[in-house]
Design a binder for these strands. Structure first.
Lengths: 177, 177
DNA sequence: ACCATAGCGGACTATCGGTCCGCTTAGGAA
DNA sequence: TTCCTAAGCGGACCGATAGTCCGCTATGGT
């Protein structure tokens, strides 16, 4: 890869990350604004990332690799493992609110076709099956993941209502009981 | 109100309802398409409903008044009342998938500032408080409502995974237990 | 029958995501 | 160091969309 290409790639990712976190709403961040902030032409972005979804997914994968990759499997009960998994997702979305809001709004507005979702869902189904049996495991996994959707995280950040992580633990333990 | 205004209002509401249910994705339904289908000019729509959100909210309120208004309160336990409430919401969103998908995608993508949401949340908080106490009631109510979000309803309609209403009953009973 | 005006509607604007192609420059070869 | 080729750049451009505006129409009270 040519040096200027790599340099521009990093500049674009840094620019979009900053703009997403600064904006109230991800839709306010236009591709033109990203190009201007990165100091590159708009064509460079679309050539390097395909389209808006590709740019956001690339940044997301990047941040996931940084924050979520080191998973020391502290062996526990399925219930505790689910609590830990969902807590990790929640805090990740708190730390990357703009990015995760944008990600869940792409894919024609539904987060259910992102590659990461299927993986999380499958893991949760496995934990639920081991913890309480297979009845309704698919739906319950969806429901638990719905409780950590980024716009709910954002909503509770703006108008707090108790301790969400405590509520999340409570929810998971009830489901597994 | 002049007769032509009332006539156009009904034509627009009928057109947008039809187009939303026919479309795979609510974003495919443009305001131009609604105007053409209703046989009116685009200005007529924006004068009568303000903007896209206003049009969708008006249609939603209309349908809610038709389908959800007659609430015969079959007095039961808080848990059963919550099951009934959420089941009613689920089936409403199944019956009006295009409309509810569109509604939850307006409001800058978050359903949490719709007037109807606060009402449902308050009702659920009350039921949860009576059924299991006030701890985490706010969060748990949000989580239960997240389990009936329209894009999850739609996702499970497209790729079924067990009986969602059975799963929903299961979830609510666990939360209340 | 008349006419003031509520209401109409489509041309217009602003802005967006995405495309395209002539120009620039990186970086291996000689 | 020089040269040359193609990888890469970037901004003018396009099509679509939500929303605006204003000259015209037709409603319904007088």
């Amino acid at each position: 890869m040519r040096a200027d290409k790599a340099r521009n790639r990093e500049a674009v990712l840094a620019a979009v990350a900053r703009l997403l976190e600064e904006a109230d709403d991800p839709d306010e961040v236009s591709m033109d604004a990203v190009a201007a902030a990165a100091g590159v032409g708009k064509g460079t972005i679309f050539r390097g990332f395909g389209d808006r979804r590709g740019l956001i997914r690339t940044l997301y994968d990047d941040r996931v690799a940084q924050s979520l990759a080191p998973t020391p499997p502290t062996a526990e009960s399925p219930s505790d493992a689910a609590v830990e998994l969902l807590t990790r997702v929640w805090t990740f979305k708190e730390q990357h609110r703009g990015l995760t809001l944008a990600l869940e709004r792409e894919g024609q507005g539904s987060p259910y076709q992102s590659a990461g979702y299927d993986r999380l869902h499958a893991d949760l189904v496995s934990l639920i099956t081991r913890g309480r049996g297979p009845e309704n495991a698919g739906f319950l996994a969806h429901a638990l993941l719905a409780a950590v959707r980024s716009d709910l995280v954002e909503h509770l950040r703006r108008q707090p209502d108790g301790d969400p992580l405590a509520g999340l633990r409570d929810l998971v333990r009830q489901v597994f009981s």
